[in-house]
Structure formats: C-alpha cells, structure tokens
C-alpha cells in the first residue's frame, strides 16, 4: 500500500495543474498519501506479529550512495578519457567493493546499477583529462573526509571497515596525483 502510494507520487506523468484536477485536489491527495504512509506501518504490525516499526535510515547509508557516486564518476572519466582506464579502473572497482561491503554490513540492498548511473555527476567530457582528474580529486577528498568522520562515529563493530574505506580513499588521492 505504501509502495503504491510512493509510486504514484513519483509518477512523472502526474503534473500539478493537470486538466480536470484543481491545485487543491492535488494538495489534498498528497496529504492523504502522507497520512496513509504514516499509518501504514502501524496497521501492518498485526501481519508480522510484534515487529517494530522500520528503523530509521542506517548512519552508513550516505557512505553507500557516496561510494556508488564516486564509482560512477570514475566510470564517466574512463569513458571520456580511455587513456586513464588502467589507472582509474581499480579505483572505480574499489568504490563498488566498498558499497557492496557496506550494504552487507548494514543489511540494505544496493540500488540497481542503472539507478546509480543516474547520479548527477560532473560531466568529465567537458574538459581535459587533467580537469577530469582534478574533479575526481575534489570528490575523493570529500569522500575521504566523510568516511573519516563516519569512522570516528561508528560503533566498534563497524569501525574497522569504515576506517579501511577512509584509508582507501586517501590512497586514491595518490593515484590521482
């Protein structure tokens, strides 16, 4: 039920001000969807015994999307500048391995490859190879800082994995030098 509602929200054909639907109707519809979304899990409790409400997003979730975004940026740079492939491909693969391992640890499903590819990444084809490398450096540096912060905040059981990811991102900066 909740899923159905979300799909309706995300329907690209549904535009505000569509013929036959006043703005107020659309607003009311959205409010109803929000209400259903809020009560859905409560009514669903009986179906699965006393399972608690779905937990809030995992603190490592941003690290997963960040890793996939970085992988997509490297892929785009490799497509635009094939001469960089030997250098960059292992790094792209490392980012994907990080995402997979984080997904395993957090018990989440990775978004499909096509969804990850739509991540808005900078267009590396616009400039030179050196400009692409410089953009990658900037993204990698930000990713390194995010992972380092996540490592200091992580529970003991996750600290080694997240620490390795932060360290790996630091080594990627060496590759981009």
């Amino acid at each position: 039920m909740v899923l159905t509602c979300r799909v309706r929200i995300g329907n690209p054909k549904q535009t505000i001000g569509a013929p036959g639907r006043s703005r107020r109707e659309v607003v009311r519809g959205v409010a109803l969807v929000a209400l259903v979304g809020a009560t859905g899990p409560l009514t669903g409790c009986g179906l699965f015994g006393d399972e608690p409400d779905p937990p809030p997003p995992d603190p490592l979730a941003p690290l997963i999307t960040g890793a996939l975004d970085l992988a997509a940026r490297y892929d785009a740079a490799i497509t635009a500048f094939p001469e960089l492939a030997d250098r960059l491909r292992p790094v792209a693969e490392a980012h994907r391995a990080h995402a997979a391992e984080l997904a395993r640890v957090t018990g989440t499903a990775l978004p499909s490859a096509s969804a990850a590819a739509t991540t808005p990444a900078a267009d590396p084809g616009a400039g030179s190879a050196s400009a692409a490398l410089s953009q990658l450096r900037e993204a990698e540096q930000q990713g390194r800082e995010a992972a380092a912060k996540a490592c200091t905040e992580a529970p003991a059981s996750r600290s080694a994995l997240v620490g390795s990811i932060a360290a790996a991102r630091a080594t990627h900066l060496e590759v981009l030098r």
Binding site: D86, P90, V91, E93, A94, A97, H98, E101, A148, A160, L161, G163, S164, I165, A166, A167, A168, A170, T171, H172, E174, V175
Partner: peptide, 25 residues
Amino acid sequence: TDAAVRATRWRKAAGISPTTVPFPG
C-alpha cells in the same frame, strides 16, 4: 591511513599494479 598511503607510494615505486588495495589493513 598514513601506512596505507605509504604502501601505495611504495607499490608505485616498485612498479606494482594496481598501486591500491580496496580495504587497506
């Protein structure tokens, strides 16, 4: 992190490819 970065620099100096590992340490 420092040890991982130095390992990468040494792999580079030694001509080892790739110069990085996915999960340092």
